[in-house]
Amino acid sequence: MRPRLPVTLVAGLALTALFAAAALLSLVWTPHAVDVLNIAARLQPPGGDHLLGTDHFGRDMLSMLMVGARTSIAVAIVAVGIGMALGVPLGLLAAANHGGVVDDLVMRGNDLVFAFPALVIAILITAVFGPSAFNAILAIGIFNTPVFARVTRGGALSVWTQDFILAARVSGKGAARISLEHILPNIASLLIVQGTIQFSLGILAEAGLSYVGLGAQPPLPSWGRMLADSQTMISFAPHLAVLPGLAIIATVLGLNLTGDGLRDHLDPRLRRPS
């Protein structure tokens, strides 16, 4: 009997896939060019030639949202990648040295990063190196690192107590090899779930940074900056604020549902006998 996929997972994957498809499509085709101004057609309401209307420069909102999805997803993917690439090895290292000096160093370093307000540091980084999508990625990535380190260490510690680890040690395998061969595959599901959750947080963080002007710079469209630009026009062109806002909410919701669904699906302890 094939295990049935949970509803949350299907709904989450569908939402996520929708935005991923839009982002991919924007690489090759958008309904209108996003870098061409058309003042004659500015502030059109949704419908007609421009399906979702136009902004104050006459740019097509649908095209802007599609390219914005690309920006958001690219920033979040790379940021999560940085977090995993740094955090997972640190977590494995800490778990392998459980109770030792290295463990303490890694975990106290984690506490240190956690102790800083993430957004303030992100602002600091962009203030020093200048605002750009790349610096936003870096800032978000750095704050993903301790999250992954902690999750990895927690999961790895419980795997380390299992008998098959002892069997591997009897076979003369060292900590590094055991971590890669035995620990990592057994905490992969944990990391995937955490990855989707960090992914949605990354999209939120990118939107927040762009909103205050520290993320992606014009002319590259970004959901956060679309929101910021629309502020002054919200009374007569509400679609300018509503559409990117909805896009952010739907993507984050989709990713969170995916994360929850994956956890239920991948964690055998939560899986009901079918």
Binding site: Q162, F164, A167, V170, E181, N186
Partner: peptide
């Protein structure tokens, strides 16, 4: 030397 453990479920990597 080799060892055989008690728990037939925990002594193998399930992956």
């Amino acid at each position: 030397m080799q060892i055989v453990f008690q728990d037939p479920y925990g002594s193998f990597n399930p992956r």
